[in-house]
Design a protein around this nucleic acid. Structure first.
Length: 242
DNA sequence: ACTATTTGACCTGC
DNA sequence: GCAGGTCAAATAGT
């Protein structure tokens, strides 16, 4: 049985494989005149780097890290003294990146914004768009922290129990690439079972890479700037576990 | 008209 | 009383 890190490493490799297949499709269909391959190449390289980092991290983590509960136990309980509003508060991780990542594979609805005393920048609060429909209690907070360069810290709280198919509309035209032909279920967590999602959600940073893959449809449509603006080069170092 | 976002008020723990 | 998180009415966008 694979450990959780093994699963993440395999998932990252599969994503790289999926993007490689996408690149292959682009090459075969001679689409390169209208689109840049650099985002795909970066995604492939980042997937491999991420997979390597997961493999490497196995040598530095306790053996019992595999369960979600154990992982949560490594999180400082700073949120415990705050309001719960009946939801299970489980802070998985935070992601720091040079740009905010509004599209991380799930559909979010902003429900608040607040100035934080410890920061000159406001903090935004998001909740899963399917919170009501599917009783999903996943939330995230996004805050810009003044660093050099400034980075956006995204903190994810709660579990996604919804099945978000919004980014996998199957109505693309014939010119679009059908990723489901080459992408396994582990690369498309939205198609996985709820139980599997709970595992996958431990590492949303890998979902960012996944989204680069999924949203290639947008890329192929007409927006050459999409990747450059939405998904700057991603490093596994952007992912920081508590 | 519907949906998403904004924003001030409110709630709760410390 | 303060600070952070959430609610919900107002507003904007489609």
């Amino acid at each position: 049985m694979f450990s959780n890190i093994d699963q993440k490493a395999v998932a990252a490799l599969l994503r790289g494989q999926g993007c490689a297949n996408s690149l292959k499709t682009l090459l075969e269909n001679h689409k390169l005149s209208s689109v840049s391959t650099e985002p795909l190449i970066n995604t492939i390289l980042n997937s491999f780097s991420l997979a390597l980092s997961f493999v490497d991290s196995r040598n530095h983590l306790p053996h019992n890290e595999s369960s979600l509960q154990n992982m949560a136990s490594h999180v400082p309980q700073r949120s415990s003294k705050k309001k719960n509003y009946g939801a299970e508060v489980l802070e998985y991780y935070r992601d720091e990146s040079p740009t905010p990542r509004p599209d991380d594979g799930f559909t979010w609805r902003k429900y608040g914004q607040k100035t934080i005393k410890t920061s000159p920048h406001q903090r935004s609060y998001y909740i899963c768009a399917y919170a009501k429909d599917q009783n999903c209690n996943a939330k995230k907070r996004v805050q810009m922290i003044p660093d050099s360069p400034p980075v956006y810290r995204t903190t994810y709280v709660g579990k996604h129990v919804c099945k978000d198919f919004a980014v996998h509309d199957d109505t693309y035209g014939s010119e679009m690439i059908k990723f489901d032909q080459v992408v396994s279920k582990s690369v498309m967590p939205q198609l996985a079972t709820i139980e599997e999602q709970e595992i996958i959600m431990e590492d949303e940073a890998t979902d960012q890479i996944m989204n680069q893959e999924c949203d290639i449809n947008d890329f192929l449509v007409d927006d050459d700037q999409f990747w450059a603006t939405q998904f700057p080069p991603f490093s596994s170092e952007d992912l920081m576990f508590f």
